[in-house]
C-alpha cells in the first residue's frame, strides 16, 4: 500500500493551490484525496495536476448545487401570473339558448371605436387582445358568477363581456357589458396590469336587453 507522503502534498500544494482564495478548498481537497487513497490502498499512478483540476471541477459543481435554489415553488404562483378577476352579474333574464351561442370576456388595450369585428377577432388570436378561454357560465338571471383571467401585462382600456348571438363566429357578436360603464358614467374604466400583479374586483354588469354602446361596425 502506498500512501501520500509529505513531499507529495507539498509538491501538489505548490503547483496547484497558490491562489489564496482557494486555500480552504485546497485543504479540504487534500484531506479527501489522502483519505481516499489510503483507505482503498490504490497505487498512485496519476498526476496530481489532472486530479486537482478534476476535483476542483467536482467542488465547483457541488458549490453550484448547494448554492442553487430548489427549483419551482408554489410561491411563484402568487408572485407571477398577471391578470385580473371579478364577478359577472346578470341584470336581466337570459336570451333564448339559440341566441346565446357563446359568452366571453375580452380585454382590449385601446378603445375599439368603429372597428371591424373581424379585425378584433384577428387581434384576439394574435394575442394582442386577451380573452377568456372558456365560455362563461350562464346561471339563472340575477345570479353572480366569478371569473379569473390571466393576461399579458399592459394597460387595458376596454374590458367587456361579449355575446355570440348567431352562428357566424365572424360577425354575430355584441357587447353586453363593459367594466366601469353605466348610463351615469359612460366611459369604460381602465385597468393597468403589471408584472407580478393580479387585480381583483373587476366586476361587470350584464344586461342582454339594455346594451352599452356597440364599438363594432
Amino acid at each position: 500500500m502506498k500512501v501520500l507522503n509529505r513531499s507529495h502534498l507539498k509538491n501538489t500544494q505548490s503547483m496547484s493551490f497558490r491562489d489564496t482564495k482557494h486555500r480552504e478548498i485546497s485543504i479540504l481537497f487534500l484531506i479527501i484525496k489522502t483519505r481516499f487513497l489510503t483507505s482503498f490502498g490504490m497505487t498512485i499512478k496519476f498526476t496530481f495536476e489532472i486530479v486537482s483540476d478534476i476535483c476542483y471541477f467536482i467542488i465547483f459543481i457541488f458549490l453550484v448545487l448547494v448554492g442553487c435554489d430548489k427549483g419551482l415553488t408554489p410561491v411563484s404562483n402568487t408572485v407571477i401570473s398577471p391578470g385580473f378577476s371579478g364577478t359577472i352579474t346578470y341584470k336581466s333574464p337570459f336570451p333564448p339558448t339559440d341566441s346565446l351561442i357563446d359568452l366571453r370576456i375580452v380585454a382590449v388595450p385601446y378603445y375599439p371605436v368603429d372597428t371591424l369585428f373581424q379585425d378584433i377577432l384577428l387581434k384576439v388570436f394574435s394575442g394582442e387582445i386577451a380573452y377568456s378561454p372558456n365560455k362563461l357560465s350562464t346561471l339563472d338571471s340575477g345570479a353572480t358568477a366569478s371569473y379569473e383571467m390571466l393576461v399579458t401585462p399592459k394597460t387595458y382600456y376596454y374590458i367587456a363581456v361579449v355575446q355570440q348571438y348567431g352562428p357566424s363566429t365572424f360577425s354575430q357578436w355584441r357587447v353586453v357589458g363593459v367594466y366601469g360603464y353605466s348610463l351615469a358614467s359612460p366611459t369604460p374604466k381602465t385597468v393597468i396590469v403589471t408584472d407580478n400583479k393580479f387585480i381583483s374586483g373587476i366586476n361587470i354588469d350584464v344586461d342582454f336587453y339594455n346594451l352599452p354602446p356597440q364599438p363594432f361596425k
Binding site: 459543481i61 448545487l65 442553487c68 427549483g71 419551482l72 411563484s76 407571477i80 394575442g127 378561454p133
Partner: peptide, 30 residues
C-alpha cells in the same frame, strides 16, 4: 449530474388555448 438551461421560448398559444395556468413557469434543470 445533469444541467439543462432554462428553455427560452415556449408555445404561448398552447398556454392560452389549453389553457395551462402558470404554464410559463420553468427553471434551469439540475
Amino acid at each position: 449530474f445533469r444541467f439543462i438551461s432554462r428553455v427560452e421560448e415556449i408555445d404561448d398559444n398552447l398556454i392560452k388555448l389549453a389553457p395551462i395556468n402558470n404554464g410559463e413557469q420553468r427553471v434551469p434543470i439540475y
